[in-house]
Design a protein around this nucleic acid. Structure first.
Length: 526
RNA sequence: GCCCGCAUAGUCUAGUGGCCCAGGACGUCACCCUUUCAAGGUGAAGAUCGCGGGUUCGAAUCCCGCUGCGGGUACCA
């Protein structure tokens, strides 16, 4: 049904020629924390839609809730967007993360910080009051809470506010206002009728006006609520399409009413799906990593997160899942957007991250991106040879799932010695005993010392021959070497690893492992 | 409670009346490759298309009802 509506809409626009009207959309985050993946998802859809149609993206900051403002949040949000590769054409700009306030703006529709547009909202609210679309309300929070509770219990519609101040005498209102009594401005919702609008992905949505509350438009602190600010700004900023999250559907009729009251044309509107946790509840901090910066810290690369986010609630066909940003821009449109919420699957994100690291990015790119993590772990300094780092990354590249695990995976390439455990060294799976392992270690140390690790094939032949001599399978010889060199049972190919580690280190570690195992034997025997 | 939205395997999805006793992907399992782990390859299990009624020669697809899940219900956004 949704798609039919969408198609019908397109056709109409084509016929009337309105398709030529340039598209303008906005991201409208509230600076109340870091960039949440859910909001990144909506933003991405907004961005893809706009870029696909060659439109203009506006970044507007909705900082009208003064109590929930979080310092540095703004920088964190723009930082997250930039990291993801989502840019904007108009709006605020932050020069440095260190500076919590916007340094400058670009675009002709500013200011883009709602806190700097207070006068506009105040005037709009007053205009609505003067024209009979809104009214002043003096009710106390206590009364409001009580009324709400009563009406909900008795199932009286609308269930919130009882419109107590809706018909106050004008002179009464003026007197109380003049006396400085605290007041809010509320929307005068029609007492009956059906309010409907067309959602570009869901089709027609209709609501009985009797269920709608006289919502607050202007708060007593002089700041507007979302409802007023969003409508005023979208109109003044010439926004043509509103793409926002599903949680806004219930209040959309209020916005319809507002556009009607102002006699403004309402932008096209579409609500995107919600991202859910594994308990099917709206994704939140309780579900683990939810901010874009957390994914970044956890070694997720932006291309993978962007790609993964794109295929939640949108699909191109029945098989393609990997898309570059350019392909997404080319292919993305609202007609293939779904309306059902989706559980955020960390496993699939990780798989996709691995795809990018292992198959899509080049070795140089992966190395460059892993570098910060290696530096942070102290494994790489300015003195470390870039070529050496690259060689190490090359060895582990295909098993990296997250960049953040690179230091742990490659530690033995950067530390002088490694630590052992009996279980790893004396592999049960290879049917080895401590005695056998000691013999293997001693024999291989000599074999390696007498060979050349740079000759990969030669070394392999040599060690396979050694296995034959000892009457063992190749694996029974290789596993102790692997553990002696790395301290672990899962590593890259043995001979590549030996080559990178170097002759000297290999011989030393083989000897060290032998010595260590002998000591363990002495302890357990004694 | 009330209002709104959504409904294909554990998860993300393809599907817009016959090509579907339902295709792809993640995950799971098995096998192959193999010096380990990955990667890769092959294959398997897993969906009575939420349920019940219609419409139709024919429905996952259209209609109605129900159920389930979610969202909203603030001087938050």
């Amino acid at each position: 049904m949704a798609r039919q509506v969408c198609r019908a809409g397109k056709g109409t626009r084509t016929m009337t020629g309105e398709m030529t009207k340039p598209i303008r959309t906005r991201f409208a985050p509230s600076p109340t924390g870091d960039l949440h993946v859910g909001s990144a998802h909506t933003t991405l859809f907004n961005w893809l839609f706009t870029r696909h149609h060659g439109g203009t993206v506006v970044l507007r900051i909705e900082d009208t809730d003064r109590k929930r403002l979080v310092e540095r949040s703004l920088g964190s949000i723009t930082d997250g967007l930039t990291w993801l590769g989502l840019d904007w054409d108009e709006g605020i700009e932050i020069d440095e993360q260190a500076n919590p306030l916007p340094d400058r703006e670009r675009g002709d529709y500013g200011p883009y910080m709602q806190s700097e547009r207070q006068e506009l909202y105040r005037q709009s609210a007053e205009w609505l009051v003067e024209h009979g679309h809104a009214y002043y309300c003096f009710c106390s929070p206590e009364r409001l809470a009580q009324v709400r509770q009563e009406r909900q219990a008795k199932n009286i519609l609308p269930s919130g506010y009882d419109r107590h101040c809706r018909d106050l005498a004008p002179e009464d209102v003026q007197r109380r206002l003049a006396a400085g009594e605290g007041a809010v401005v509320r929307l005068k919702v029609p007492l009956e009728g059906v309010i409907s609008f067309t959602d570009l992905v869901r089709g027609e949505i209709a609501v009985d006006a009797r269920t709608l509350e006289d919502a607050v438009l202007l708060k007593s602190d002089g700041f507007p609520t979302y409802h007023l600010a969003n409508v005023v700004d979208d109109h003044l900023m010439a926004i043509t399409h509103i793409l926002r999250a599903e949680e806004w559907i219930p209040t959309a009729p209020l916005h319809v009413l507002l556009y009607r009251a102002f006699d403004w044309e309402m932008p096209q509107i579409a609500h995107m799906v919600l991202l859910l946790g594994t308990d099917r509840k709206k994704l939140s901090k309780r579900h683990g990593s939810t901010s874009v910066q957390e994914f970044r810290a956890n070694g997720i690369i932006p291309e993978a997160l962007l790609n993964y986010l794109a295929i939640i609630g949108w699909s191109w066909d029945d098989k393609t899942e990997i898309f570059s940003k350019e392909e997404l821009i080319e292919k993305f449109d609202l007609d293939r957007v779904k309306a059902s919420s989706a559980i955020f699957d960390h496993q699939k994100l990780e798989w996709m991250n691995g795809q990018y690291i292992n198959h899509i990015l080049t070795l140089d790119e992966v190395t460059a991106r892993a570098l910060p993590y290696l530096r942070e772990a102290g494994f790489v300094t300015d003195d470390t040879s870039p070529d050496y780092v690259k060689t190490v990354v090359a060895l582990e590249k295909e098993r990296i799932k997250r960049l953040s695990e690179v230091p742990e995976m490659t530690a033995y390439f950067f530390t002088p010695t490694v630590e052992y455990t009996i279980d790893a060294l004396v592999s049960k799976k290879q049917k080895l005993t401590p005695e056998l392992t000691l013999r293997v270690l001693a024999a291989t140390r000599d074999a390696v010392a007498g060979g050349d690790v740079a000759d990969l094939a030669g070394m392999e032949t040599r060690l396979r021959g050694l296995a034959d001599e000892l009457g063992l399978k190749a694996g029974q010889v290789f596993m102790p070497i692997r553990v002696a060199l790395s301290g672990r049972t899962a590593t890259p190919g043995l001979f590549e690893m030996m080559h990178v580690l170097g002759q000297e280190t290999c011989v030393a570690r083989l000897g060290a492992a032998h010595e260590w195992l002998q000591e363990q034997g002495a302890v357990t025997a004694g």
